[in-house]
Amino acid sequence: MPTNLTFDVSRRELLIGSASAALIAGLGGWSADAAPPQRDGSVRLTVNGEERTLELDNRTSLLDALREHMHLTGTKKGCDHGQCGACTVMVNGERINSCLTLAVMHDGDEVTTIEGLGTPDDPHAMQAAFVKHDGYQCGYCTPGQICSAVAMLDEIEAGMPSHVTPDLTARPQASEAEIKERMSGNICRCAAYPNILAAITEVEGARA
C-alpha cells in the first residue's frame, strides 16, 4: 500500500462509499481490477511420518494444505486468524497455529497432526485422557487442545517459562496455573476447561 496518502475521510468511509472503487484503483501500486497474480510453489513436507510433496497456490495456509489438499480434516479451522487455537499442530515438535503460516514456508518440515498422535484403536495417552475426563463437548476445538497440550508439556519439561512462572531462574513446574496459562490460546466455547485440565494433569503425572 502507498504510504503518502492523506485521508480526509475515514478509511472506512473510503472503503464503503459507492465511489470507493475508483478511488482505490487510483492509488498507485495496487489495483482493484485484478487480484495479485497467482503463483504456485512446490513444498515437501513430512506429515505424520509420511513424506508428501504438494504443488500449491502460495497463498495456501498450512492449515488449508492439511485440510483441503491432504484431507487431514482432524485439524480444525475455527477463525483462520490465530485467535482460537483450533488449528494447532506440531511443526518440528513445536505447537503452532497452522492458519497463521503458509504451507510453502515449511519445505522440509515435519508436521504432526491429531491423526498422527493416535487413532481410535490406538490412542495417544492425551487422547485417551480427554475421553476419560470428558475433556470436550462439541469436539471442534479438541484436536487443537490435544496437540497443544502434548507440546505444552514438552515446553515445561524443556524449562521454558511462562507469564505466570513464579521464578524465572528455577525450572517451571506443571502446576494448575502454568497449565491453564499455557493452554489459554486454545479456546473451548463449550468450556470443558476443568475437564481438559484434569486430562492434562493426569498425563503429566504419568510422564513425571
Binding site: 481410535p120 480427554f130 475421553v131
Partner: peptide, 19 residues
C-alpha cells in the same frame, strides 16, 4: 459414562460439515 463419540472426536476422525 464416557461419550461413545469420544474416540472419534479426540482423534480427528469425527467429520464436521465442511469436511
Amino acid at each position: 459414562t464416557p461419550r461413545i463419540d469420544g474416540p472419534a472426536k479426540t482423534t480427528g476422525t469425527a467429520t464436521y460439515a465442511y469436511e
